[in-house]
Amino acid sequence: MKVTFNKRDPVYVQVVRHFKEQIATGHFEPGQEIPSRRELATQLKINPNTAQRAYKEMEEAGLIYTEGNSPSKITKNEKVIDNVREELILEAVNNFVSAIRPIHVPIDEVVGLIKEKYHDDEEG
């Protein structure tokens, strides 16, 4: 696991986001065990307190769950997983739209370009 952090967003937020991406793309499967906060801190080279904070946030959001003393696991709740996926897509689209809007491009042209680009990238 390797994450490049930016310096202006809280590190715990970036960790949560990283987990969401992994969940949405299926890299983390439902019910999969996740590293302890200590292991996570070592892997990502972050402060253990930050790892702790990220896990707390994810636990509260239902992204992970803990049963008794066993290691925490990725949620099996499909609705939560779908929400995460949707959230990430929506966020990316929002970012894109707010970037493209000031250029005043007709929507059809944009969609066409997106299709082309998407296709090219997949082939290349």
């Binding site: 310096k7 202006r8 967003d9 590190v11 937020v13 930050t50 904070r53």
Partner: peptide, 14 residues
């Protein structure tokens, strides 16, 4: 450091 990132959107260097 986390509070300053969260509340002010600033890095430590900022």
């Amino acid at each position: 450091t986390e509070e300053v990132r969260e509340n002010e959107g600033k890095s430590v260097v900022d």
